[in-house]
């Protein structure tokens, strides 16, 4: 299984590449006033607005550094009814993929206190790498805010 690796702060995380549509360079987002924490705004991707979430802001309350290796990961976010929405995630050090069997990831042992999107971890020479589940990335309220309005319009 292939994973896309990125960093939030000093730690490494991975996403399943099946959920990733494209990795984009950093671009300007239109600020959406009044949106919940973590959401930067919306980017114009091929004429369609895509909500942009800064993973650094979501997880640590600190924006990703504006350097070349900080990129936007365009993922397909399942809407629960078989369809999917595009979701843009801003993360640091989006420069590497790794191939690992899913069984290599083991539970952290501290699931109870951590956000739902953080999955099991994989150990390698550089430390631990944590699996981020795209489908659990948004809280139900955030999901409602980002995608429900689009369906009504």
């Amino acid at each position: 299984m292939l994973f896309l690796m990125f960093r939030i702060g000093r730690d490494r995380y991975v996403l399943d590449v099946d959920a990733v549509e494209q990795v984009l360079p950093l671009m300007d987002a239109k600020v959406l006033p009044g949106v919940p924490a973590g959401v930067v705004g919306a980017i114009n991707y091929r004429g369609a607005p895509v909500p942009l979430i800064d993973l650094g802001r979501l997880a640590l309350g600190r924006d990703c550094a504006p350097v070349m290796s900080t990129r936007i990961i365009l993922v397909r976010y399942p809407d629960g009814t078989g369809g999917s929405h595009r979701l843009a995630l801003c993360a640091e050090r989006v420069v590497e993929t790794i191939a690992r069997p899913p069984e290599a990831f083991v539970a952290t042992g501290v699931e109870a206190g951590t956000p739902g999107y953080l999955g099991p971890v994989l150990a390698d020479a550089g430390g631990l790498i944590q699996w981020v589940r795209v489908e659990a990335l948004l809280s139900p309220e955030l999901r409602e805010v980002l995608f429900r309005t689009g369906e009504v319009a």
Partner: peptide, 15 residues
């Protein structure tokens, strides 16, 4: 190279 700051106009161009 990876950690260098964005050159001027980079974001605007990709946007």
């Amino acid at each position: 190279l990876l950690d260098r700051p964005l050159p001027p106009g980079y974001r605007e161009e990709w946007t």
